[in-house]
């Protein structure tokens, strides 16, 4: 709410497969039609939100990074571009400059610093952005990283800038697993982070990683324990000791596991979840307001 007029909730977890997408899609479905929801699937390496929200894709845009192209007529082979590039995407080989597009971060430094203005930047597609209306009128968009392209973060950055949001709308961002730069990019600018964990040693270890990111980025967060009842009590104990709120518990049941496997959300399993997620949402709103006033 701080910088934009929409409320942005990011759903992350650390460990993969704890139920991020299940929670994010169920939350989105619970809030519509009362709220104007934009769902952004930021797991561009393995996007799954569309399998549950079933958007009809109406808009498409290439996700690109700008890579250098050298005008050999103008190039003096002075090596300045090679010098300024921090990612070894340019190399001087004999009397010419070679470009390695997959190493390029698209920063534009080489073009800016070329003394003979021999470098032009061209668009190099690394993925695609798609958008459309999904179930219950949810506005949906996701990014898809092209196979064999290494960099997910620029696609997430472009995805977040792509769709316009209106005042008072709610953005739900489904994060990738892990705790590296792509998770940070998803969390940037979020008003609240909903962390989905499972009560196992792996779940706890990876949850701690994401909690550290939240602390560093100063984003308020709460935890949902999914598959409650499997594993042990260490996640509970840890959260209690560190005064981190548990906002919801979803029990392990074969019914839920099979439903999610079939592409259903928690609302298909039980209509009670609709109410639970609405309550969760009002708690989140309250926490965000408190965070902004202090």
């Amino acid at each position: 709410m701080k910088n934009s007029k929409a409320l942005c909730i990011a759903v992350a977890s650390g460990k993969g497969g704890t139920g991020k997408t299940t929670v994010a899609t169920s939350l989105a479905l619970s809030l519509t039609p009362q709220e104007n929801v934009l769902f952004l699937d930021c797991d561009v390496e393995a996007p799954n939100g569309h399998l549950f929200l079933r958007p009809r894709i109406e808009a498409e845009k290439k996700a690109v990074i700008l890579i250098p192209r050298i005008d050999v007529e103008k190039c003096l082979t002075c090596g300045k571009c090679v010098e300024v590039c921090q990612f070894h995407a340019l190399a001087e080989i004999g009397k010419s400059i070679m470009i390695f597009p997959q190493l390029c971060h698209g920063c534009g430094s080489c073009a800016w610093h070329c003394p003979s203005k021999a470098i032009k930047e061209i668009k190099n597609p690394i993925g695609v952005l798609e958008a459309g209306l999904a179930l219950k009128g949810i506005r949906f968009a996701h990014g898809i990283l092209t196979i064999s392209e290494p960099m997910a973060t620029p696609i997430i950055r472009q995805l977040k800038k792509w769709q316009k949001t209106e005042t008072g709308s709610v953005i739900i961002q489904d994060a990738p697993p892990g705790a590296s730069c792509s998770v940070v990019e998803t969390l940037r600018g979020a008003d609240f982070a909903l962390l989905v964990s499972e009560p196992t040693p792996f779940g706890l270890h990876d949850l701690k990683q994401v909690l550290d990111i939240l602390k560093e980025m100063n984003i308020p967060g709460g935890v949902i324990i999914n598959r409650d009842g499997i594993g042990d009590f260490q996640v509970d104990q840890f959260l209690k000791q560190n005064h981190i709120p548990i906002m919801m518990r979803i029990p392990y049941s074969t019914e839920i596991a099979s439903a999610v496997a079939a592409g259903k959300t928690l609302l298909d399993v039980s209509s009670n979840y609709g109410l639970e997620f609405k309550t969760l949402f009002s708690q989140i709103k309250k926490r965000v307001m408190e965070n902004e006033t202090c």
């Binding site: 497969g17 797991d43 390496e45 990283l145 196979i147 290494p150 960099m151 892990g178």
Partner: peptide, 10 residues
């Protein structure tokens, strides 16, 4: 390996 298909997976 890690999940996904991006840089650490490659």
């Amino acid at each position: 390996g890690p999940p996904g298909i991006g840089c650490p997976v490659i």
